[in-house]
Write a protein that binds this DNA or RNA. Structure first.
Lengths: 318, 318
DNA sequence: GTGAAAGCGCTAACAC
DNA sequence: GTGTTAGCGCTTTCAC
């Protein structure tokens, strides 16, 4: 492993000159700088992140902490964040579980984006005190260094429900995800707002947990019911898909017997028949916005945090 | 930001005692150690990764560099690697693109797992010189610090083809992925080996690029052909799915008109009708094996590198 | 059992 | 334009 000293030795100058040259300090004339850079590359020198981070007290790195790598939603989000970060000269690292904790508390990044329900509000608040800005995507949380950027669930669900109502549906059931999550609550509230505006009551409510198996169970429950809703608004696609599959297997026709809608627009929703109407978010764009916001925060510039809009995808399922 | 000095001040001892206590050095009696730990936690002290890494010349961190976050295969692999790494006290970071390069060259991790075709063999070899062990999953490459761990494509494809032959198919076509990739070559060679064993010639070969659109194009090409193969062995699922969709849309019945098989067993392959026969790898287990191997390498223990076996999933598509 | 001190590889203030 | 040097926050050797 070569160090800055080795470069200085070969170049016949001091280590500070090497440092200046490699960091493009204007005081070093181009000829000298180029010579030094050439030497550095010849002997295969790269500055040590550890040493630089220690001295500069920053890492030029952003951490993205996620729950797991299997979520159907994250890919474009991560790609979008990385795209913007790279463009601005930052390095992005992604982590899960205990690794996220280690990286956060030992300050291995200058800022972080969190979408990991396994990290409690408590420990996030504690971590944030020692840390630089943290953007949370999966909850609302107000504290030092913590910023919330969420999808405008309420608005998107409100618009979707208005569209459903305009199609003449009125026996409308709602399928909840995990009850006290931010996503479930805000989606539900948007749904309710649209119904209330028309003076319509919720026909029935069902309780799932955002997974397909919970949708399958709700589907089975529905089949026993002689007085079915004519429309089912689901808090996410996975449950909607589970319900749809169960209903169709048992001879129900969608959308003529019963309409159904989801939220998230996962890939599979375009593969089923009829295609599932849902709400989609341009995650790549959202990722870019998040990264841009975090970069401003890191530079201590003014930020104006806004919610990401959902896009309503009306297809064949209602 | 509190440092080790702050803890020492409050505890009324030297920084070395704090360091010993926090690192569970047996020389410090439990009573003292506990007192110091309590103080540290009270003032919210966590050691700085940068300082520790610089002094210890290691990071206890492993980097996993991937092509992008959208690949259908990676989730369980990453989860498997993380599971094992966490169990052994390592932190895992995942990165793509330029970030991977930065992290690698600045030695932000002690070892790395690479599955990113965008990193050239050349730069990998160069990076590996300065770096600690690197395990590559997506190619064969022999050099200092570089270790290959791959799926036994040849064997899996050989076994699948043998099974296909035993079902009586003999006009067998092969659908290539990107021609000169490791995956394509080894899968093809397994296919050929099984045919040769029976003295059967390849009926026809088709050339795709591992994507669904390329499968769709091959499907269109097939439809123009009056003398179709009776079986299509594809280098991966995505192409197989594209072909299948195109053929079915045009009235061909699978498997009676033509059989088809894939490789990778992506989720979607169980959703189509008939379900696609394919080769599956237990990626979570494979991830654990990879992590275990890397940990041994980091500890400079003996390793015995073996290929991961594929599991043949015979379903309805042939 | 505890402390003083050296030093990991850099950056940057300061001197010339 | 270049060099000397202090010091970032730790770990660890050595002394006591």
């Amino acid at each position: 492993m070569s160090t800055i000293k080795d470069v200085a030795k070969v170049a016949g100058c001091s280590i500070s000159t090497v440092s200046y040259a490699l960091n493009n300090d204007k005081r070093i004339p181009d000829i000298t700088a180029d010579r030094i850079k050439k030497i550095a590359s010849e002997i295969g020198y790269f500055p040590s992140a550890a040493a630089r981070n220690l001295k500069k007290r920053n890492t030029d790195t952003v951490l993205v902490a996620i729950s797991d790598f299997g979520g159907p939603v994250y890919h474009e989000l991560l790609d979008g964040i990385h795209f913007q970060l790279a463009k601005s000269g930052y390095t992005m690292i992604v982590s899960t579980g205990i690794s996220s904790n280690n990286l956060l508390k030992e300050r291995s990044a200058d800022g972080a984006v969190i979408t990991d329900i396994h990290i409690s509000d408590q420990s996030l608040i504690q971590l944030a005190k020692n840390f630089r800005p943290i953007i949370v995507l999966d909850r609302r949380l107000k504290d030092t260094n913590i910023y919330n950027m969420t999808i405008d669930n309420h608005k998107a669900m409100y618009c979707l429900t208005k569209d459903i109502l305009s199609k003449g549906y009125f026996k409308i059931g709602y399928v909840h995800g995990v009850k006290d999550t931010y996503d479930n609550q805000t989606r539900y509230s948007g749904f309710l707002a649209a119904l209330q505006e028309k003076g319509i009551k919720v026909f029935r409510e069902y309780y799932g947990n955002f997974t397909k198996p919970s949708g399958i169970m709700i589907g089975a429950e529905l089949l026993k019911d002689s007085n079915l809703p004519d429309m089912l608004v689901c808090a996410n696609d996975e449950m909607a898909l589970g319900i749809m599959e169960t209903l169709q297997k048992n001879g129900k026709i969608i959308p003529s017997d019963i309409g159904i809608s989801g939220f998230d627009d996962i890939d599979l929703s375009s593969y089923v028949n009829p295609q599932l109407s849902s709400i989609k978010v341009n995650h790549f764009e959202w990722g870019k916005t998040i990264a841009l916001t975090l970069i401003k925060l890191l530079k201590e510039e003014e930020v104006d945090i806004h919610k990401q809009e959902g896009i309503i995808m009306i297809r064949g399922s209602y």
